[in-house]
Amino acid sequence: MSDLQLTDWRNHALALESEVNKVVVGQHTPIRLITTSIFARGHVLLEGDVGVGKTTLLRAFTRGIGGGYQRIEGTIDLMPNDLVYHTYLGEDGKPHVSAGPLLMSGENLSVFFFNEINRARPQVHSLLLRVMAERSLSAFNAEHYFPHMIVFADRNQVEKEETFEIPSAARDRFMMEIPIVVPNDDAIMEALVFDTKFHNVDALVDTVKPDVLQFDELNGFSGVIQSNITASDTLKKYALNLWKATKSPLDYGVKVSGVDMNRLVLAGASPRGMSMMLRAARVNAWLNNRTAVLPDDIHAVFHSTIAHRLVFSPVYEMRRTEIAREMLSGIINAVAAP
């Protein structure tokens, strides 16, 4: 029964990917990673410049999986309560309270997009991180649950003024950090500029086939995937070695050009990070019609699940993205399996 279920869901997942790929072109890898995170039930940090299609991408996915989609912009004066409710004077001249973005869709909230999260204050981060971890919120003397919610947050890596860097403990709550970059294919770039279908985002998103997946069944099915996709002893050992290498890369002969490796890493991947990596790897194996995880599956999600968890010496933080990429590539090249 579960084999049939796995096949059926995989067909739907691939159909969803196909639908989103029609709308957001040239982003096959991020789309695969987002699909993976949806089925692994992990939150995602999106990294990319302004106007590369992050919102369109998330709206397209939301339309495909159904459920509510909410979005909030991070600003320096944003307060935690702005996520929960807002007050206004009604036509009757009396103050009114209405639900904020978190509460607006109730339990049907499936995608919550926090744009430019690093512009918001740490108090806001705290609230969001609690919601991410517990998928619940206490407000108006009641407990509100968001069992199907996945948080997508975007951070602006270019501008540093009036921003609050997300601490490593907060970054660790995100399953993945996915880079969204402008495609470098000339034909795609030309289409994005001249093809009028990409000018109207609403109309574009409406072309996605709605409810390809059932958002309220994803939690249950995620468990099916995790219990059906196996990991051999060899793979477990391999994953363990990868983990150790993130803590002591020099022990595995990993070097990064222009970096003192003895001082680089303050903390490697966390146990939560490694378990999230393996969750994502299992989903990747399932999407590739495999019954067990291969090193290839780990490679497919290794950068996106581990890079943002590494804690570097402050002197290297400015070059975090390139150093993490080079170091993790070095680890994959250095650690063998079997």
Binding site: P295, N333, A336, P338
Partner: peptide, 24 residues
């Protein structure tokens, strides 16, 4: 058979001076 496969993996890795997998 396991030993043979492992030995050949090692040979690929030593030849390339990196871990060789199907995806690279």
């Amino acid at each position: 058979l396991k030993q043979a496969v492992s030995k050949l993996h090692l040979s690929f890795n030593n030849t390339a001076a990196m871990s060789v997998f199907n995806d690279n």
